[in-house]
């Protein structure tokens, strides 16, 4: 610190100067100290697997055999790989089918939960119960519900004279069933996050809006939504990340041999399933590494588009 060369202070004021310096150190240094634990753990346990995976993706790397450096060959092959693009299409399709209604529902639910009503705690705790159940259990239960011969849904539909649907056999039905599983699990969770953010919005704003004669709907659009912007960005990004990494639901939806292919015509194989298929069924670790890198890239691109969209839709500042 060169600025300590300042004129020598009289003895009685050394303590404050020392304090000032300490305070400056606190001001400059403590942000780094605050973020340090995260980055230390990330540096040890996050960065290595990441770099390793990228390194592997530049090789022909059978999990158990000899490795050979191939440069960007895996990536070139990937770009021409119909199965990869099919998985990308499915992932985005299921993401849209599941996320759009999920967000609308979650916002609606959060607004409702934000009202005054009886048994508040019961209902508020109730919405997170789906999240308590493990994905594996959810999928198991939902496969039972969507089973062709003894499933609940077909039983109910049968009551209306609809013939039993093989839910896993068609693209539309499998996407619908998988989206339902995802939404059942995550709508309440997002609603709760929205709710927490809504509770932090000062009530005076609503009162002011009410004085201006704004209806409840109008209040929602002009007060609630703009103030939820940070939270909306947060939930969109986490949903994108979760959506692109969707894995267990489609995997367990049609169990048995070859489940990793996501249906007989790969109609619901997601990117992460394709990653695992390459890594642990075909044991092509290098190629799987390239898929991982592409997933990463894809999430990044969609996230950026989304941040831009949310900014435009909900106003910017």
């Amino acid at each position: 610190m060169s600025d300590t060369l300042a004129p020598v202070q009289p003895a009685q004021t050394t303590r404050p100067a020392w304090r000032v310096r300490l305070s400056r150190l606190d001001h400059k240094g403590s942000p780094y100290a605050f973020v340090a634990p995260f980055f230390i753990f990330f540096g040890i346990f996050g960065a290595f697997p990441l770099i390793y995976t990228f390194w592997v993706s530049l090789h022909d790397w059978p999990l158990l055999g000899e490795h050979a450096f191939t440069g960007l060959e895996n990536y070139q092959n990937l770009l021409q790989d119909a199965q990869f693009w099919n998985a990308a299409k499915n992932t985005l399709g299921i993401f849209v089918v599941s996320t759009v209604p999920q967000f609308a529902l979650a916002l609606w639910l959060a607004v409702t939960l934000n009202r005054k009503f009886r048994a508040q705690t019961l209902f508020r705790v109730g919405v997170i119960i789906p999240n308590v159940t493990s994905v594996a259990a959810v999928t198991l239960i939902f496969s039972m519900i969507f089973a062709k011969s003894f499933g609940l849904v077909n039983w109910v539909l049968g009551g209306f004279g609809v013939t039993a649907i093989d839910w896993a056999a068609h693209t539309w039905s499998s996407w619908l069933a998988i989206s339902l599983m995802v939404d059942w699990r995550w709508t309440g969770y997002n609603a709760l996050i929205f709710l927490a953010a809504m509770q932090a919005i000062p009530k005076e704003l609503y009162e002011a809006a009410a004085i201006d004669g704004a209806s409840r709907t109008r209040q929602f659009w002009s007060v609630t939504l703009p103030l939820l912007r940070p939270t909306l960005i947060f939930t969109t990004i986490t949903s994108i990340i979760g959506g692109v990494q969707l894995f267990t639901e489609p995997l367990l939806f049609a169990p048995g041999a070859g489940a990793i292919q996501g249906g007989t015509t790969r109609q619901f194989q997601t990117l992460t399933m394709y990653l695992i298929e390459n890594g642990f069924t075909r044991f092509e670790f290098g190629y799987a590494g390239a898929v991982a890198a592409m997933i990463f890239l894809l999430v990044l691109i969609i996230s950026l588009i989304n941040i831009w969209l949310v900014r435009r839709l909900v106003g910017s500042d």
Binding site: D166, T265, T281
Partner: peptide, 19 residues
Amino acid sequence: QAVRDAIENDLRSVEQGQR
């Protein structure tokens, strides 16, 4: 194993009437 899984799936697509 990888090939067998893939072929079984294709056979099943005939069974389900998709192809």
